[in-house]
């Protein structure tokens, strides 16, 4: 019974296939690149990201920045944002990037390092569209790309400052780190954090664990429980999984230092401070450059010095002392002026 059905469908597939092969080369006509944005036309930006826009971490930091710029520019009429979230499959992400590029977006953001290879391939085919990707430092200039921006976050800097705060808050002199996968941005943050703790209290214990996943909330929760059982009274962690760890820390009264997005809303009593990735500066600069006709070539780096990384204290948390504030300021100044070197 099915075989004949199969044959019909196979015939259909082949027919469509032939049509596709015949029709394809003519398909994507490149629009004129020189069109200056008319005031009536909204600025169109699209973003492809690996987790959800409500992850309180990596993806949300980008969306929050885009939305705040949108509000500043005058809402939907001035700026149009398209989002593809949960793009953990890189092939799907590649398709999304290509689609957004051909759909008239002026800026296409590949918000995940794993999208780099696909992004460059698409960028080569759409020289009139501007691309941005991160965290990365490569704009492809060496290969002749002029339409790619890259952005990186020196996560180790804020990690260091968070470490200073953690060391000053800890009474047990044991701090715990709930890491995702031991690589990239997360590793940089964690290494910086450890250096920060040891700079204040060289004899304190810094316990590190990794869950082996960016999104495993339950595993992060268990890691946090283990840290607390091992005596840690201040915790930190990275990636979207940390909401699980924060939930446990709140329950057990351990303090938390955040990174990427502000996590204070989740647990106002225990989140002391967050290293905020503020992409607004970078994005505004990129948009200004695009509107001025420059489509790429800049490698941005969020640092404490340029204000892309911000240490934001949670105003609802009562335990911040003036000494702590002073130590944080000293650390930020030290890092900015190069007196303190943080190794990623």
């Amino acid at each position: 019974m099915f075989k004949r059905g199969t044959l019909v469908v196979v015939a259909f597939v082949l027919a469509v296939l032939l049509t596709a092969c015949g029709g394809a080369p003519a398909a994507p006509a490149a629009p004129a690149a020189t069109d200056a944005p008319v005031a009536a036309e909204p600025f169109k930006v699209a973003v492809v990201m690996p987790s959800t826009e409500t992850d309180l971490a990596w993806s949300q930091a980008m969306i929050d920045a885009l939305r705040s710029i949108q509000a500043e520019m005058g809402g939907e009429a001035a700026m149009q944002i398209s989002i593809s979230e949960n793009m953990f499959n890189v092939t799907d992400a590649a398709a999304a990037l290509r689609d957004y590029a051909s759909a008239g977006n002026q800026l296409v953001i590949a918000h995940g390092t794993q999208y780099g290879t696909s992004m460059f391939e698409v960028a080569r085919d759409f020289p009139e569209v501007s691309f941005a990707w991160g965290t990365a430092t490569d704009t492809g200039e060496a290969e002749g790309f002029t339409n790619v921006f890259s952005y990186n976050a020196s996560a180790e800097e804020g990690g260091y400052v968070n470490g200073v705060i953690a060391a000053m808050l800890s009474t047990s002199n044991v701090v715990g780190i709930v890491g995702p996968v031991e690589a990239g941005d997360a590793k940089a943050y964690i290494d910086g954090f450890e250096q920060g703790v040891l700079s204040v209290k060289p004899d304190s214990t810094v316990n590190k664990t990794y869950t082996g996943s960016f999104g495993d909330t339950a595993a992060a929760a268990e890691a946090a429980s283990t840290h607390i059982a091992a005596g840690a009274d201040v915790l930190t962690g990275s990636a979207q999984q940390v909401v699980g760890a924060i939930g446990v820390a709140k329950e057990r009264g351990a303090l938390w230092l955040g990174t990427q997005s502000s996590q204070a809303s989740l647990a106002p009593d225990i989140v002391v401070a967050t290293q905020l990735y503020d992409w607004t500066g970078v994005l505004k600069d990129i948009i200004a450059k695009i509107q001025a006709g420059t489509l790429g070539g800049t490698a941005y780096d969020l640092t404490l010095e340029n204000g892309g990384l911000k240490i934001v204290f949670n105003s609802a948390f009562p335990g911040v002392t003036p000494e702590m504030q002073a130590a944080v300021d000293t650390a930020i100044q030290g890092i900015s002026s190069g007196v303190i070197t943080v190794l990623p």
Binding site: V90, T91, G116, T117
Partner: peptide, 14 residues
């Protein structure tokens, strides 16, 4: 054919 290198998320649900 697609990525030309291994990146995170290569198996994505297949």
């Amino acid at each position: 054919g697609v990525h030309r290198r291994i990146v995170e998320g290569i198996s994505g649900g297949y």
